[in-house]
Structures are given as C-alpha cells and as structure tokens.
Design a protein around this nucleic acid. Structure first.
Length: 264
DNA sequence: ATGGTCGAGTATCGA
C-alpha cells in the first residue's frame, strides 16, 4: 500500500505534471493540498482515467485539499468534525480508503509571529487534535498527512539561525504540532531517517532549490499500527525539478498490508 | 538594486 502527500500549489497549473507523476510513482492513496480550485473545477475524470476515485474540498482561489484512492472512498468529512468550530477555509478533508482512515491537511501558514493568522494557526492545530479525537482511534490504521507549515525540529530547516524569529520554527508551533502527534501518530520519515537536510519545500526565489535551502514541512504521520508496517519512505525531489514545478516535493511511503487482511 | 518567483488574476496579495 503506497501513500503519498503533495502540496501541488494549484492543481490547474500542475495537472499535467501530477498525471505524469501518478503514472510513474503509482501511489494507491494520494493526499493533495493547495489545489486552488472550486469543487466544480476539480478534474475528477482525469483522475478516474488513471484509476483513482477522488474527493475534493475546495473554495476556488486559495487552499483546497483532495484525496485520491484506488481503494474506494467512503466516510467523507469536509473540514472539522461536528462540534468543532468550522473553518472558513478549505484546509481539511477526511475519508476512509479501504479500511484506512485518511486525513489530508493544509495548515494555515501563520504569516508572521504576532500576526493574527499566527494565533489562528496555533488554534487550528488544536482543533485538528480534537478532530482526530472525534474521527478515529489511534489503534486503527490512520494517516494524517499534508503541509503542516511547521518544521518539527531545527534539523528540518536549512539554517536554524536564519530561520529563527520566523514562522514554521517557533516553539509554540512545534508544541502545537507535537500535541497533534501525541494523539498517537508517528512522523514516519523522521523515525526511519535521522539525518538533517531532508526537505520537502524550497522557496521559488533566489535559486533556493538549487542551493538546497529548504524546510521539511510536509509530513506523513501514521498511527502506531500503521507505522509499524512501514516498508520505505522517501521525498521525491525529482518532482521539484524541471519545468513548472510546485515549490513542494511529494512524500511517498510504502506500507505492508495488515497481517489479518491477507486473502480477504 | 534592500529584491530575487511563483499562482491567483490583471493590481496586488499570499506563500
């Protein structure tokens, strides 16, 4: 079972590359962020032609998240679960794909420390934790993945000194992310690979990708039963190269099937 | 030169 997450920075601009990438990487489940599409404009048929059922939660100009699945899609929840203050923006989508609970997230950027959107970001991560409480149990197979707009540790940024004082690295953001993970989720890339300079996002400007000045802010968090079945995980830097790339690279992980599901 | 590039949309804002 191959699961991927990718902030595509406009699915309209990126669809040709996304289609080629799907054919090459062949993931079974894909979480997309920043589609920047209204639901009516989502290319359902393009994904169906590649063998994916899809669900999209969009608003048009900004944000927008989607889940593609080769295992079917059911139990869709747009945004936060009932009882949690609704999000005015399309940043969260949950669905069950063949027994796996899948949550795709596009966490607010925060803009700058002291900006109202920074407090909004912290509150949003708190609501995400409550969303997981309402949606699933950590003893199930659950994956929460997407663009968290938080680099969990200093080794997840190109230069902690240069980044200090900005968003993505503050103690409060890291604590809010840790609270989400403490629900019962493992950052599987970090569990498997401990070295620094494993980035998923590079600013378009100033040749930062070429200079490998990036951050690891796109995470694939798995519940413990799922995390224990990780075969491999990688950051697909090739998808950040060439013509008209997103500024994010996908994260792709392979998991073995649960032991009790063989043979059906 | 106090920016650098994208994508939204068509002036700027957001990332």
């Amino acid at each position: 079972m191959r699961i991927a997450t990718w902030n595509v920075n406009s699915l309209k601009a990126r669809l040709p590359r996304v289609e080629l990438w799907l054919a090459e990487v062949a993931p079974d489940i894909v979480c997309l962020q920043e589609t920047k599409l209204a639901d009516e404009a989502f290319p359902t048929m393009a994904f169906a032609a590649l063998g994916y059922e899809a669900v999209h939660h969009g608003e048009g100009r900004w944000n927008g998240v989607a889940i593609l699945s080769r295992y079917g899609i059911e139990g869709v929840v747009d945004g936060f679960a009932t009882g949690i203050e609704a999000d005015a923006e399309a940043r969260l989508l949950s669905a069950t794909c063949g027994g796996l609970r899948v949550v795709t997230v596009y966490v607010p950027n925060g803009r700058s420390l002291g900006h109202p959107m920074y407090q909004h970001k912290l509150g949003w991560l708190g609501r995400l934790r409550r969303h997981l409480d309402a949606l699933a149990s950590p003893d199930q197979d659950v994956v929460v993945c997407g663009d968290f707009n938080v680099a969990p540790e200093d080794r997840d940024v190109w230069d902690p000194v240069a980044c200090h004082g900005g968003t993505h690295v503050s103690e409060a953001e890291r604590a809010a992310l840790a609270e989400v993970a403490e629900w019962g989720l493992v950052d599987v890339l970090r569990r498997r690979h401990q070295e620094g300079r494993l980035f998923t996002w590079w600013d378009y400007r100033a040749g930062n990708f070429h200079k490998h000045l990036g951050m690891r802010i796109d995470l694939l968090l798995a519940s413990l039963p799922l995390a224990e079945r990780l075969s491999w995980i990688l950051i697909d830097r090739n998808a950040r190269k060439g013509k008209l790339p997103s500024d994010h690279a996908p994260v792709v992980a392979e998991f073995t099937e649960p032991a009790d599901s063989s043979g059906g």
